[in-house]
């Protein structure tokens, strides 16, 4: 790979990349070069639709993005901490193993699909099938906290991890519009604000009030969320939350004839 003149080193370990008019593959090459050059922090400016940012980087480097990164931001990601000053598109945190994504805006469909670890904080709302097939293993436990509301199939097939839906854009008396919430859920937990009719829930989902341990998890995560977006955690936590949990760990146990 030729040396890249766009790689500037303004400070010791901060490298700046101007993504203007650079194609996805080339941009990701520059990102990998910057990590290889020992950067602790990479500032990506003028990002506009380039995909897969953060993929194949296996270190806890900090990546700051100005603009709108494309689909599959941090897909298969294993370590980096990404902050987006803008919106994320579809597939943000797809099959993520470790790391953190903080989006100062919205995110699209399938946010955190099949993730096994890492944390995703979205300041505003998310699209369809957020947190679908999240799973946890050992000390790995994926977490997604959403400030706004979500579209249908939120937490579908969920097998592990924690989803938090704060719905800060809604009043306590407002009903969510999402349908099929948690359908096929067989692990993990969802904490949510706002009201739901029972038909909006998947058949495999139970609802309960939060217990002491739940409150502890929730207040920790809301604390982190509020820290990222400069919000008042106590004010958020004063709202009423509902816990959604899987009724069965084997929802499809009695399906077959042998």
């Amino acid at each position: 790979m030729p040396a890249n003149p766009a790689l500037k080193k303004p400070h010791n370990s901060i490298i700046e990349i101007n993504a203007q008019d650079i194609a996805t593959h080339e941009l990701n090459n520059q990102l990998k070069q910057a990590v290889a050059a020992g950067a602790n922090k990479i500032l990506m400016k003028n990002v506009c639709g380039q995909r897969y940012i953060g993929t194949d980087i296996n270190s806890p480097v900090e990546i700051e993005i100005e603009g709108t990164p494309g689909n599959d931001l941090g897909s298969f990601m294993n370590g980096p901490r990404i902050t987006v000053h803008g919106n994320a598109q579809d597939g943000c945190g797809n099959t993520m193993n470790e790391g953190e994504i903080v989006v100062h805006g919205h995110a699209g469909d399938i946010t955190g699909l099949s993730s096994r670890g890492g944390r995703i904080f979205i300041r505003e709302g998310v699209g369809y099938r957020t947190g679908i097939h999240m799973k946890e293993y050992g000390n790995k436990k994926p977490i997604i906290v959403i400030g706004g509301a979500a579209q249908d199939f939120f937490g579908e097939y969920m097998a592990g991890g924690v989803l938090v839906l704060l719905a800060l854009n809604m009043k306590d008396s407002d009903y969510h519009r999402t349908r099929y919430m948690g359908t096929g859920m067989h692990g993990g937990v969802i904490y949510m604000r706002g009201r739901l009719e029972s038909h909006q829930l998947g058949r495999e989902v139970g609802t309960a009030e939060l217990n002491g341990a739940d409150h502890e998890v929730l207040s920790g995560l809301v604390g982190q969320f509020a820290g990222h977006f400069d919000l008042n955690a106590d004010k958020i936590l004063r709202h009423e939350f509902t816990k959604l949990f899987p009724l069965y760990h084997r929802p499809y146990g009695r399906l077959y004839a042998y």
Partner: peptide, 12 residues
């Protein structure tokens, strides 16, 4: 598979 022991593994 990186899933807990005894849990169903669903491939959508």
């Amino acid at each position: 598979r990186m899933i807990p022991i005894g849990s169903d593994a669903l491939s959508p």
